[in-house]
Design a protein around this nucleic acid. Structure first.
Lengths: 199, 199
DNA sequence: ATTGCCTATGCAACTCGTTGCATAGCAGGA
DNA sequence: TCCTGCTATGCAACGAGTTGCATAGGCAAT
């Protein structure tokens, strides 16, 4: 129900077509709200029907035509109403955390490469954030309201990545320790453990 | 597709009924994987049909009967296979972050109380985590594999809450600053701004 | 006595999100 | 020349998740 509002924010920051929105949702906005092009097109049609946004056909040469949407008055009003509603607690789906706990019932060593992969991914994302901050906010002393708020959200992303990076290092240290000194002590790994539980 | 596996982990850590699982998903496991009792009952039936888990009817006095599930051999094997599959990047839905950026097109002051509410909620959750750590892990020098892994995940939760708390304070400082010195400078609030965008 | 809450499980309907596929013109490289 | 990839939009089917409701007994408080 909130994809509408994420799209509205994006269109207020900059009008664009469904395709352009889909790409933004792969990049900046997508860091805290994901959507596929299918969802976006479907919701855009509904929003246009409800008068939240206005569409304009734009012919391009060398490329297919596109429909450029921009936020309309009713959309802005809907956004204001939504802003005043309470935010329900986020529903978390942290698969890696589940797997880490699951590793106790199989082989912790099997997780190491996957955790390393994630660690590297988060390190790369942190670098991208920091680079984007340099590029988009070169002078932090003269920002307007929209930029101030974009920047405080970006700071959140940066801190999240830093924290995640540190935690994944912690996880790796723990996994290595378990693999080193506890070669199958209590419940652990492989077919032996599996068969033992299969009473 | 991963709820099965979260349930398996929970049943391996401790067998239980659908109802008991639903309550765990409101508490410990629920911090990184949410599910309603409807999902849980539906998936439990499927898992039992697939032989992943075994059910045992347990009569209770003063209470309705319950079906206690525990992980079976095929479930353990399925878990081992799943552990070796790559984790897809998490799909994020961070509504508060969207609202913070949305506030630029309405009144930033309207968000303050909501951000404070979240701040207090995260502070309370952090306190719960720290209390639970004291209770469940009194001696960090003698943990088995399962406990080590549970604890490293808990550490992640604690660090996440600490980071979020600090960020929300940052957000509040920013909002207060915007409200104080920029009373409607660029684009900002209310019906005036709304009407202006309604060309 | 009635009201409301807790345990325990479940059906039915709905919405949201994902996946696979389709079209269609243009650009660039093997 | 063919193949791949990009822009740009969309249909259809499916699966996952949510919401409302139902049952049914026991407990505790008003």
């Amino acid at each position: 129900m909130a994809l509408e509002h994420a799209i509205l924010v994006s269109l207020l920051e900059q009008p664009g077509s469904g395709y352009e929105l889909a790409r933004r949702f792969d990049r900046s906005i997508g860091r805290f709200w994901t959507a596929t092009h299918q969802q976006i097109y479907r919701v855009l049609r509904r929003m246009e029907a409800d008068g939240w946004i206005a569409a304009e056909e734009v012919a391009q040469d060398g490329r297919p035509d596109k429909k450029v949407y921009s936020a309309a008055g009713p959309g802005r009003a809907a956004l204001a109403d939504w802003l005043r509603e309470p935010v329900e607690p986020e529903t978390v789906r942290h698969e890696l955390a589940v797997k880490i706990r699951a590793a106790a019932f199989d082989d912790p060593a099997a997780l190491i490469s996957e955790v390393e992969r994630h660690r590297d991914g988060h390190a790369a994302l942190l670098a991208r954030y920091l680079h984007g901050e340099q590029r988009d906010f070169p002078d932090l002393t003269s920002l307007d309201t929209a930029q101030e708020l974009q920047h405080v959200v970006l700071r959140g992303g940066i801190e999240y990545e830093r924290m995640t990076l540190a935690w994944l290092d912690d996880v790796l240290t723990t996994l290595h320790r378990l693999v080193a000194d506890g070669t199958s002590p209590d419940d652990a790994p492989g077919d032996a453990g599996r068969a033992a539980a299969n009473r």
